[in-house]
Simulated assay, not measured.
Amino acid sequence: MAFHGVLPHRQPLFQPAPRRDIGVNDTHAWRLNPAHRHVYDKLQLALAQGLRAAACGVDPLSVGIQTATPLFVKPITNLLGMSLNAQATTAGDLASGRTQVAPGCFWSEYLVGDHTSTDCLVLAGKVLWLAHTQGATDKDKQRPIYWHIGVRLPALEPLLTVFVETQLPGYTGLCNVEMIGGKVIEMHLRGSNGFFDFYGAHFVPAWVELVDKRVWQGLEAVREGYVYSLFGEGRLPADYADIAAVHGVKIVPDTVTLDRIAVLYADTLDAAQQVARLVAL
């Protein structure tokens, strides 16, 4: 048995190997968790929270939504990139056809507020541990430019706990919940792999022990840091690693996301921004 979906350069982080199969990306997590894969249906997540939402094709005006009301359109399920084809619009533009949407999308009320991402370790449907991350208000195609790791969000924890335990009865393992303004927008049956560097040396062993043995001995608090995305279609200079090291930053070229050049891991936002300016060509 093994972790499934680990990128080659991340292999050293995923130790020890589990005795059970664990998916670390959405395609493998969906495949390996048939009893809980319903959480990838973003329309059902919206409806479960009482949000106004429906599959595209249902006229929002026909259900009493006003023409000028802002809406968000995105795929109901998309394991190859959950935010791909997402766009903001209004009820009037959607109803009139001025907003073009791809097949398989839904609309929901437009949410505002803090964009957060929380990894949760869960045992038999009960939340044991949470690691919070907050997204920047500066965005590229609705994606935060950076994430602040290790933030404290005590007000969200009761909401998160109830929602996870309602949606994932009997589940054991890691899951991730993204929220905007305290409302869930996505769930994943895996963690935010790009944030694991800040979770400490005991995180992966504790996760594996939880899944393999159903044993939980606790974890230290997550240290603060920043994961900064260098979006665009350029390239890195040959000495990018040396430039980053001077500022105490680790930089990893992104060979998967088409419009992201690299990901930077830094203890401070200032260090990440300095390196981003220096390596952007």
Rank of each mutant, 00 (worst) to 15 (best):
235 R>L: 09
93 D>W: 00
105 C>G: 06
201 A>N: 08
186 E>I: 02
251 I>D: 02
133 T>H: 12
280 A>Y: 12
175 C>V: 11
223 R>F: 04
272 A>C: 06
254 D>W: 02
187 M>K: 10
269 L>W: 04
280 A>V: 12
203 F>L: 07
194 G>S: 14
30 W>N: 10
158 P>V: 09
19 R>D: 00
183 K>H: 14
1 M>E: 08
45 L>F: 10
67 T>S: 14
184 V>T: 09
86 A>C: 11
258 L>A: 15
259 D>N: 15
18 P>E: 00
240 Y>Q: 02
275 V>P: 05
277 R>Q: 15
276 A>F: 09
259 D>G: 10
182 G>M: 07
234 G>T: 10
223 R>K: 15
82 M>N: 12
257 T>A: 12
10 R>S: 13
239 D>W: 09
146 Y>L: 01
222 V>W: 02
140 D>S: 13
197 D>T: 10
30 W>Q: 07
1 M>Q: 03
252 V>S: 12
200 G>V: 07
114 D>E: 15
63 V>K: 02
236 L>N: 07
68 A>N: 07
167 Q>N: 10
51 L>Q: 12
259 D>L: 13
253 P>L: 02
144 P>R: 01
195 F>K: 01
32 L>V: 10
237 P>A: 07
31 R>Y: 13
204 V>H: 03
87 Q>K: 11
19 R>A: 01
179 M>N: 05
55 A>M: 10
230 L>E: 06
194 G>N: 12
124 A>V: 04
8 P>L: 11
204 V>K: 05
207 W>N: 03
260 R>T: 06
246 V>C: 08
94 L>F: 09
263 V>C: 13
118 T>E: 03
149 I>T: 02
262 A>L: 05
234 G>D: 08
111 L>R: 01
249 V>C: 01
14 F>R: 02
62 S>V: 04
245 A>R: 13
221 A>L: 14
131 A>N: 14
209 E>C: 12
253 P>W: 07
38 H>T: 03
40 Y>K: 05
162 V>F: 00
233 E>S: 14
270 D>N: 05
191 G>V: 05
252 V>P: 03
225 G>Y: 03
69 T>K: 06
187 M>N: 03
155 A>I: 05
21 D>T: 10
86 A>P: 01
121 L>Y: 00
134 Q>T: 10
213 K>Y: 01
49 Q>M: 03
271 A>M: 07
55 A>L: 10
195 F>A: 14
159 L>F: 11
234 G>I: 09
112 V>I: 11
6 V>F: 09
246 V>I: 15
19 R>C: 04
169 P>T: 03
5 G>E: 11
40 Y>R: 04
23 G>C: 09
173 G>D: 01
61 L>P: 11
80 L>N: 11
119 D>T: 11
215 V>D: 11
27 T>K: 05
185 I>W: 00
61 L>K: 13
254 D>H: 12
188 H>Q: 15
65 I>M: 13
148 H>R: 14
154 P>G: 09
125 G>E: 08
143 R>Q: 14
1 M>F: 02
277 R>F: 01
266 A>L: 07
154 P>I: 06
140 D>E: 15
110 Y>G: 07
96 S>F: 00
35 A>P: 00
192 S>K: 04
217 Q>T: 09
108 S>T: 13
42 K>Y: 06
223 R>L: 06
173 G>V: 04
82 M>S: 13
175 C>S: 04
155 A>R: 02
236 L>D: 06
164 V>G: 01
16 P>W: 10
261 I>G: 04
127 V>P: 05
117 S>I: 01
76 I>K: 11
